[in-house]
C-alpha cells in the first residue's frame, strides 16, 4: 500500500517560507486566498518558539500566529503564489 503523489502538486508545488520571528522553515502552498497548506519537518518544529505539540487536538485553531503572518507576508512579497489567481 504505497501512497501516491498529490496530482495538484504537479502544477502548483509547495514553496519554502521562513518564519519572520524564529526563522523556522516550512513548505507552504496556497490554492486560493482562503486556503493554506503547511508542511512542517522535524527541524522546523524544533526551531519554532511557539510550538505546542498536540494543540490541534485541543481545538486551538491557529497553530502559530507568527508563521501565519509570515506566510501572508510571503504572498504580499510575491514569494508564494496563490494558485487560483494564475491564468
Amino acid at each position: 500500500m504505497s501512497v501516491r503523489a498529490d496530482n495538484r502538486l504537479a502544477d502548483g508545488p509547495m514553496h519554502p517560507v521562513g518564519c519572520g520571528s524564529c526563522g523556522a522553515q516550512v513548505l507552504a502552498r496556497k490554492s486560493s486566498w482562503q486556503q493554506t497548506t503547511v508542511q512542517w519537518d522535524e527541524t522546523a518544529t524544533a526551531t519554532c518558539t511557539d510550538w505546542d505539540p498536540g494543540s490541534a487536538t485541543r481545538g486551538r485553531f491557529p497553530v502559530c500566529e507568527q508563521m501565519r503572518a509570515s506566510i501572508a507576508q510571503a504572498v504580499v512579497d510575491g514569494l508564494l503564489p496563490v494558485v487560483d489567481t494564475r491564468s
Binding site: 482562503q34 486556503q35 493554506t36 497548506t37 503547511v38 508542511q39 512542517w40 519537518d41 497553530v63
Partner: peptide, 11 residues
C-alpha cells in the same frame, strides 16, 4: 511530521 491544511472563508 506535522501537516496543516486550512480553509477560512470568513477572512
Amino acid at each position: 511530521d506535522r501537516f496543516e491544511f486550512e480553509l477560512d472563508t470568513t477572512k
